[in-house]
Amino acid sequence: MKNIDAVAAFLALGQESRLNIFRLIVQRGDVGLTPTQIIEKLGIPNATLSFHLKELVQANLLLVERQSRNLIYSPNAVLVQDLSTFLLDNCCGGKACTPEKITRKTKSI
C-alpha cells in the first residue's frame, strides 16, 4: 500500500460521523447497509449521509452495489486488511507484538 492511499483512508475516517458510518457498515460485513438503514441507526440527515458516503467511497473504504432500487454499502475488506498490514508492517522491530501480561499494583492504605 502506498502512503498516499493510507492517508486518503485515514483522512476520510478522521471525521466522527464518517467513522461512525464506517464502523456500522463494517459490523454488517459483506451484507452491507442501505442509506435508509444507516439513517435509522445513526439519525444522520439524508443529505449529510450522502456526502459522507461519497467521501468514504472515494477513499475506497466502501463498496457500493445497486440491488434493484437500493444502493448497498459494504466495507472494502481488501483495503481494510491492507490498512491493517500497512500499520503493523514494521511493528515492534520484528518481534512479536503480543504485550506481556500487565500486572497492576494496588496501593496499600
Rank of each mutant, 00 (worst) to 15 (best):
I102Q: 10
T103G: 03
V64K: 10
T34D: 05
L49A: 08
R18H: 07
G14N: 15
L88Y: 12
T103L: 10
N20W: 00
T106S: 14
I38A: 07
P45L: 09
S17V: 13
S84C: 07
G93P: 03
L83I: 05
V80Y: 08
S74Q: 15
S84N: 08
Q15K: 07
G32M: 04
S74M: 15
R18T: 05
R66T: 14
D82I: 08
I21N: 00
K105P: 02
F22G: 01
Q67T: 10
D30G: 09
K107Q: 13
D89R: 11
K95C: 08
C91N: 09
D30E: 15
Q15C: 01
F51P: 00
P45D: 12
I4P: 01
L83V: 00
E65Q: 14
E16Y: 00
E100Y: 00
S84Y: 07
T106G: 12
P99G: 03
A9N: 05
F86I: 01
R18F: 04
L79I: 14
Y73D: 03
T34H: 05
L24N: 01
L61M: 13
P75K: 04
L13D: 07
I25N: 02
V64R: 05
L19Y: 09
A47T: 07
R18C: 04
L53H: 03
M1G: 03
R69N: 13
P35V: 04
T48M: 07
V80G: 01
Q67C: 03
L87R: 06
F10E: 06
Q15W: 00
T98G: 07
E40R: 00
F51Q: 09
Q37G: 12
T106C: 10
F51E: 11
I72R: 02
L62Q: 09
L13K: 07
I44L: 10
V57G: 06
I4T: 06
N20D: 12
S68E: 14
T36W: 07
L19C: 11
Y73W: 10
A9H: 03
D30N: 15
S17K: 11
I72Q: 03
L62C: 12
F51Y: 13
I39C: 11
T48W: 06
I102N: 06
S84D: 04
I38H: 04
A9G: 11
G32Q: 04
E40L: 06
H52G: 04
R28G: 13
E100T: 03
S108I: 14
K107T: 08
V57K: 13
V57S: 11
R66C: 11
P45I: 04
A6T: 03
A77R: 15
T85P: 02
I25R: 01
F10A: 09
T34C: 05
